[in-house]
Design a protein around this nucleic acid. Structure first.
Lengths: 197, 197
DNA sequence: ATCTCTACCGAACGTTCGGTCGGTTATCAA
DNA sequence: TTGATAACCGACCGAACGTTCGGTAGAGAT
């Protein structure tokens, strides 16, 4: 039923994806800096030096993790852009899709949202993040112009608060079947209709 | 006009508060782990060993920063508890007050919101944070019972999303006169009345 | 049986880190 | 002038870190 495992040559063991998974899990549990290459190796049952057979260094693991997160988000933005819907509808769909991406690629997005721009790799990721923020801001602005969104809130502030809600999932979301859709409903409900009865 | 500087004895120089301020600024710029005691010393124009004259260790700086943040939040919770207002009003006031605390003690709260519980000190802070979350959750629950909040959202989820909005300020807020109140308005407006017109 | 491929290991490297120690310098009070 | 007080410094230590290197182990292919 599962995908047929393509017989691999050479000595059996871990591959790059296994190392990435283990690394990302530890990054989120302890933080990137607090996770040593020894920790990653130990969690796989191999030695430190063996890890370097699969990857070029610690930073590559960070890079790969952040790319998987950002690719998912921009894919969602691109998909929504294609629809000819009113801006408010596109905004709501993008927010919902963002929740789903965050749930699907949970650990990768969590890594992304914690980097502070200490290295060039991190700074590049922060730049892409800011680009995504801009997409949302423009959507709010356009929705205001079309009369779909209340005009008394600053678009940039609204975008940041919306994304703040969504991104907060990395702090408390526990994967569960159907859980992501329920949260997407809650986000959409609160953000667009409000909590008050 | 300013507070009269109480003549201090001994050689003039920095005090514990100056060290804490410098440390917290660097923690937020680079992250706690990525900030070395040398970095802190350098930013004050003194040597590493001189820093230890003011504090017992790196972790104490973290502890002090987190305590200042948590004390502010619980003070706000306590103040709101005293009013005999309906739960929905108490909830809204606590959310607004939280925005103001976050703005006032911006750098301390930012430190707090980034710890992952790697040490006992961090875990204790996380426990207090969770206690604050519970206060908000209970307020949502009570507001629902009183008919002030729509009954179709899970109280715990709503509380997390509300705090997610508020806490996201640490990612983008720039101190500005009157800026905090404007953001408190935006948060309150979006969260309670909704973005849609 | 041999070749090739992939995965793995032990030992060591240079560096950085948090922290310690004994001694020095500058100010105020008596 | 002397003593107390507070701030500071240079030199050092042990541990942990990311990374490198030369060599080994086990599997499929020829």
């Amino acid at each position: 039923m599962t995908a047929p495992t393509p017989r691999r040559r050479g000595r059996p063991g871990h591959d790059q994806d296994a190392v990435l998974s283990a690394a990302v899990r530890l990054f989120n549990e302890q933080g990137y800096d607090a996770t040593s290459m020894f920790d990653i190796a130990e969690s796989l049952g191999i030695t430190k030096s063996s890890v370097y057979h699969h990857i070029s260094g610690k930073e590559q693991l960070l890079q790969m993790a952040m790319d998987r997160a950002l690719d998912g988000l921009f894919e969602a933005a691109e998909d929504v852009r294609g629809t000819g819907l009113p801006a408010i509808e596109r905004l709501e769909r993008l927010i919902r899709r963002s929740v789903l991406v965050l749930a699907e690629r949970f650990e990768f997005v969590t890594v992304l949202l914690r980097v502070r721009g200490n290295t060039e790799v991190e700074q590049h990721a922060l730049t892409r993040r800011r680009e995504f923020d801009t997409v949302v801001t423009e959507l709010v602005k356009q929705a205001q112009a079309e009369g779909g969104v209340r005009p008394d809130v600053d678009p940039a502030t609204a975008a940041r608060l919306l994304l703040g809600m969504v991104n907060s999932l990395t702090e408390w979301y526990k994967p569960r079947p159907g859980g992501a859709e329920a949260i997407a409903d809650a986000v959409s409900s609160i953000a667009f209709e409000g909590l008050r009865m």
